[in-house]
């Protein structure tokens, strides 16, 4: 157990270093854009004097490194500066949006992960059958179609033609949890369709990969029925690759939802990011990017730890 804690601490440390590198990239990528923030705020018509004044106000005449450290110090304490458009604190603007995005991601994951893994187990059990092929074709089709296309198809049928679910996932305060679930069902379903194929196929492949192992043959020769061979003997040894793919897809649910949020007009962080990019509101762009990066790093860390925890050799050392 001590070894595992040590390993986790080490990975966490590496994650922080990665995050630091990413923060450098994010900050200086924005720096590289033509013109500076003052110009962006005042537009093409600004005079040199007003520009200089604004630059001084915003501290832009200081060297980039100093401004980066300033920004980083703020970010660490949760202060991402103020929006260039309306002067509101970026953190306050982002928090609600980010919670919404996390909610949608959790909602989709709660459906997609159990569904994909169960389906993966079933197709591994019925490998090369008609069911296996149909499941593969359907999930591959859904992963190959762009999200906005899937989203509009779902809206067309489930919302417009059959009026089962609302087409627009706008939120208002005072909604009950159930209403919330109903309101966000279509975007969640779209995301489920997008991420299922990947996880299902990895589950199937990871299990089938193990079926040639001597211990699987042993299980068969002990009289274990096929489902037990898969669930009890193959699956426990297949977790590591499955967990990795699940983590990647969870990260996608948080960072890749931009299109889905736009289609369903869902007030998430993706919408905010798109708006901010359009309006050149750099502090928000930087904050969003940093949050996305942190999500990726954290989920990958969780996958590594999960893979370690499912390995009996590491869990029970000699």
């Amino acid at each position: 157990m001590k070894d595992i804690l040590g390993l986790v601490a080490k990975r966490l440390g590496l994650g922080l270093v990665t995050l630091l590198v990413v923060s450098v990239l994010i900050f200086f990528a924005v720096e590289l854009l033509p013109g500076d923030i003052a110009q962006a705020v005042l537009g093409q018509m600004a005079t040199e004097e007003t520009l200089a004044k604004l630059r001084e106000e915003m501290g832009l005449e200081r060297p980039a490194v100093v401004r980066y450290l300033d920004w980083l110090a703020g970010a660490v304490t949760g202060d991402f500066g103020t929006s260039l458009i309306d002067g509101e604190a970026v953190t306050a603007k982002i928090t609600d949006r980010f919670i919404n995005t996390l909610f949608l991601a959790a909602y989709s994951a709660a459906i997609a992960v159990p569904f994909a893994i169960t389906l993966g187990i079933i197709v591994a059990l019925l490998r090369n059958s008609i069911f296996d092929r149909v499941a593969n074709v359907v999930t591959l089709t859904s992963i190959s179609s762009p999200e906005f296309f899937l989203g509009y198809i779902l809206i067309l049928y489930l919302a417009v033609k059959w009026s089962m679910f609302p087409a627009i996932a706008s939120l208002s305060s005072g909604m009950t949890f159930l209403e919330l679930l109903e309101r966000t069902f279509l975007p969640a379903l779209t995301l489920v369709l997008v991420v299922t194929a990947h996880m299902m196929r990895m589950t199937r492949a990871a299990i089938i990969n193990l079926l040639a192992s001597p211990y699987i043959e042993m299980a068969r020769l002990k009289g274990a029925p096929p489902w037990k061979v898969i669930v009890r003997h193959a699956l426990p040894n297949a977790w590591a690759p499955i967990i990795n793919v699940v983590a990647l897809n969870l990260a996608y649910l948080v960072t890749g939802v931009v299109l889905v949020e736009v289609v369903f007009v869902y007030p998430g962080i993706g919408q905010l990011l798109v708006d901010a990019v359009a309006k050149r509101d750099f502090p928000i762009v930087q904050a969003c990017c940093l949050i996305f990066a942190a999500t990726f790093i954290l989920l990958n860390l969780a996958a590594d730890v999960g893979a370690i925890l499912t390995n009996p050799r590491l869990r029970h050392p000699k």
């Binding site: 001597p214 002990k222 040894n237």
Partner: peptide
């Protein structure tokens, strides 16, 4: 019949025991 009336002992026990389960749980499975 397998496991109950006809049993099998494989060449490499190290590879033929499932690494994810305790010996006794594999023993009592059948």
């Amino acid at each position: 019949l397998r496991g109950s009336r006809i049993a099998y002992v494989a060449q490499s026990a190290a590879a033929s025991f499932n690494p994810a389960h305790k010996l006794i749980d594999q023993h009592t499975e059948a």
